[in-house]
Design a protein around this nucleic acid. Structure first.
Lengths: 163, 163
DNA sequence: TGCTGATTGTCAGCATACTGATAATCAGCA
DNA sequence: TGCTGATTATCAGTATGCTGACAATCAGCA
């Protein structure tokens, strides 16, 4: 039978998703978010909202562009996050006196209070995420993840940048 | 000075996000997606769309509920993904003869052809994600991630389930 | 001073991802 | 047979996350 006459029955490539780093990382992210939301349920914030509140607390009066970099968020994504935090009265958005394009962010008293009550719950969530690993494995996992992040930092539109 | 008269100046807790597993996992997920999208640009599919196409190829005639579990997606999320793939003519959605609630999924010829051209690019993306690690570290990273996923599997609404 | 290019924030559009609700359907039992 | 509870898929609503485009503003220079 000549090759050309053989009906090319396209055989679907069989791939096990569990073996793919990208798939496993997505699963891990889903789980980490679920744990955070469980722990922070009474506070009512998401992981990203926590990160934004925390960075504003770390650097009061920060502008949105810098905040986006330090929280690893796209500026357009950050705009939405800050919108929601502002609507809940947790964050103030004030125009900069020096540059009218810039909007400076500060926590309100309510935002600070919420952040303070969120921190222990956030820490508990972090512990739970790594709990299945032995102590030494946890450190090794974090080391490996940080290598991956640092080396590939520039690849996403929101490259992280230390403050 | 009595405690009650001291103005409680709430001191913002300073936390370094980079030290938090959840934050690092989110960064890693952003990077993994960015690498995948770069490699798969000419094919025009996302990581999740690839996973869905691949699982349909692995099990032709699979129903959406089973597919959601094996691809680690919520059924409501999967509905949208399949909508888009169907609209592009990559997937067929047929009612089951046995149970009219169930919709069975199959790849079209175009879907199969696209999947075949996507696989090598997907594999290249997987290599790039772990490239910053040494060979032994890559295996260790994958082992640790799988421990975390397996142990915490039930925590997300879309617990993965081997086929 | 007035123009040009860069910067800041926002928007529209698309794609995950979740919760909670609902319609359609099925399976089992009185 | 007819009813009840479970199952399948879908929907509305909310929240990341990205791209590409835009208006407002600024900084630097002719």
């Amino acid at each position: 039978m000549a090759l050309t006459s053989r009906r090319k029955k396209a055989t679907a490539p069989q791939v096990d998703l569990e073996a793919l780093p990208g798939y496993c990382i997505r699963r891990l992210q889903q789980i980490a978010v679920a744990i955070f939301l469980q722990e922070a349920e009474t506070v009512g914030i998401t992981p990203v909202q926590y990160a934004v509140l925390q960075q504003i607390a770390n650097s009061p009066g920060i502008d949105q562009r810098t905040l986006a970099r330090t929280a690893a968020l796209d500026t357009s994504t950050l705009a939405g996050v800050v919108d929601r935090l502002e609507a809940r009265g947790l964050v103030m958005r004030n125009a900069s006196p020096d540059d009218r394009r810039v909007r400076l962010l500060t926590l309100t008293d309510a935002g600070l209070a919420l952040l303070e009550s969120a921190v222990p719950r956030m820490l508990r969530a972090q512990e739970r995420i790594l709990e299945p690993l032995r102590k030494r494995e946890r450190a090794e996992f974090m080391r490996l993840v940080r290598v991956l992040i640092t080396a590939n930092n520039e690849l996403s539109r929101a490259p992280s940048e230390a403050v």
